[in-house]
Design a protein around this nucleic acid. Structure first.
Lengths: 142, 142
DNA sequence: TATTTTACTTATCAATTGATAACATAAAGT
DNA sequence: ACTTTATGTTATCAATTGATAAGTAAAATA
């Protein structure tokens, strides 16, 4: 198979994922936080505990700007900061109780639209979808 | 299978795709255009011919702002505007020759990093990846 | 122990993006 | 023909995000 062609198919798939995500999340975001702040909360949500640098690296934000946004989220009481016991330069970020709740509520709203869009999926379909995602996670998106 | 759990897995997958895309595209963008303008060009690239409203809807930009960005891209000679013969309110957008070339060059650069990241994929692996994407496109991202 | 590196913060300015009002024109409906 | 709706443009201001310089403190290293 032509590598070039394969690449185009992957890029097209990525485009579909982005468009679909955008559609799902556009109205779900809390109006107290910005899109970028939402991304940060989402990242922390899935990662459980991360440092400021990790947030910056993984979301491609400069460290100063990541620091600024995390400070805002802290002031909104959505995250918890804890200085690492072993290396006190590091700050460990995790969601606060309200932050956790905010994200869960947001996901609930997104989930409704998701099932409306995805319709009813059978047990087998869900399994097949998950194994597809596992393949892609392992080989392409990591 | 628990619907809630399934949804979380999908959201996590979406996060991976976004992170991976961000990583791939962060340095590839031409420095003459903004991130949003890049998204617009990418969308037009994959869609061939679209109207201003379609760009606005699909990328979740307000119509005035979509119009503004398209105007800038037009002035940069990256897109072509053509008024629809049947409905002269509509403007059909497509990539100009330079726009097409810009995107192809950008994709080339991204592709290099992509293969560096994805490594060598066998014929079978590529086929399996594509069929995975087809499943996801059909059932989840559309 | 002195120096360098790492992790992070604060402050500031520039660039990008979002939101909204006012407008023009074409098409569709009555 | 008259009104309404759809498509798009222009202009303007606010909000978000990006980039960079300068600084602090802890850890690693020489």
């Amino acid at each position: 198979m032509d590598k070039n062609q394969f690449f185009q198919i992957v890029m097209n798939f990525i485009g579909n994922v982005h468009a679909s995500t955008h559609f799902l999340t556009k109205d779900a975001r809390s109006n107290k936080i910005t899109p970028q702040q939402h991304s940060i909360l989402e990242y922390v949500f899935f990662s459980k505990a991360v440092t400021t640098s990790q947030v910056a690296d993984c979301l491609n934000i400069s460290l100063p700007n990541a620091s600024r946004e995390l400070k805002k989220l802290f002031k909104l009481d959505l995250i918890v900061k804890e200085s690492d016991a072993k290396d006190r330069r590091k700050t460990t970020i995790s969601l606060s109780e309200p932050g956790q709740n905010l994200m869960l509520r947001t996901f609930e709203r997104i989930q409704k639209d998701f099932w409306k869009q995805a319709g009813e999926l059978s047990e087998d379909e869900m399994k097949s979808i998950i194994s597809s995602m596992v393949v892609l996670d392992k080989k392409v998106f990591f």
